[in-house]
């Protein structure tokens, strides 16, 4: 099938330059609202009320965004005169907890093996996780691979609000992984349970079941955000600079 070879060669290189350069191609990320302190009280009130997932909170006279709850519904953006400030970009991953865990770049730096567990994710997180393997994002160029068994895995990628039936498989997968290991929760559901919890059928995020190291918020987080989360594990990229609270200087 020489045709396929030519076809492949003719297509050329499509891979993103990230993380060496920032990827600004159109459509790589839906973006997200950012916290700001420069808002009229009425506009703030309107934004807080409109947010269906209580991700927007009052803070310092402006708004703060709890990214672990934001589901990109665009209701704070569309049909409003004083809409929330929207920021493109995708480096959303952050460490869970205050400080990053012990350094692992030395061990995982050149080859990071990833095991994915779908714990009740809607197809979108699934699809985005699958995309990191496509030619545009191509995780292999960064030394990231998937493994067929958790026995060889360094990182557990978890998506979904942890439906009850997936609690045991998730736990077993985590237990089957050798130490040291890292858990990356991808998506708003995995971070907080999202719109599906709290409920009788789903836990409130991965942290309820197993310890989480890195959270990649987003509904769904775009492939580059997932890559950012994985690069965070191997310390090739810093954590998201956007905290949920607006910077204090701006307020002053």
């Amino acid at each position: 099938m020489a045709n396929w070879v030519f076809k492949g060669l003719r297509t050329g290189i499509k891979s993103s330059a990230y993380p060496a350069e920032h990827d600004e191609a159109c459509g790589v990320s839906p973006g997200r609202p950012i916290g700001t302190s420069l808002k009229s009280p009425a506009a703030v009130e309107e934004l807080v009320t409109r947010c269906p997932t209580q991700a927007i909170e009052h803070a310092n006279g402006g708004i703060a965004i709890e990214y672990g709850r934001c589901v990109h519904c665009f209701r704070c953006k569309r049909g409003l005169d004083d809409a929330a400030t929207w920021q493109q970009g995708f480096e959303w991953a952050a460490f869970e907890g205050e400080s990053p865990p012990e350094k692992l770049a030395r061990i995982f730096g050149r080859s990071l093996h990833v095991r994915f567990v779908d714990a009740g994710a809607c197809g979108a997180c699934m699809s985005e996780a699958r995309q990191i393997n496509n030619p545009y994002y191509n995780m292999h160029r960064l030394g990231i691979f998937t493994t067929p068994t958790p026995r060889n895995a360094d990182v557990l990628l978890v998506a979904g609000p942890i439906s009850d039936a997936m609690r045991l498989p998730l736990r077993k997968t985590y237990d089957a992984m050798p130490t040291p290991k890292r858990v990356v929760a991808i998506g708003t559901c995995a971070a907080s349970g999202g719109i599906f919890s709290p409920s009788f059928a789903a836990a409130g995020g991965v942290a309820d079941i197993i310890p989480v190291d890195v959270i990649v918020p987003g509904c769904p987080p775009p492939p580059l955000a997932i890559l950012h989360g994985l690069l965070l594990v191997v310390e090739k990229k810093p954590a998201s600079t956007l905290t949920s609270l607006p910077p204090r200087t701006e307020h002053a």
């Binding site: 958790p150 026995r151 998730l170 077993k172 237990d175 050798p178």
Partner: peptide, 12 residues
């Protein structure tokens, strides 16, 4: 060296 049970795909 740790020994674990056979990986069972998450089955009970």
């Amino acid at each position: 060296l740790t020994r674990g049970p056979t990986w069972d795909g998450g089955l009970r």
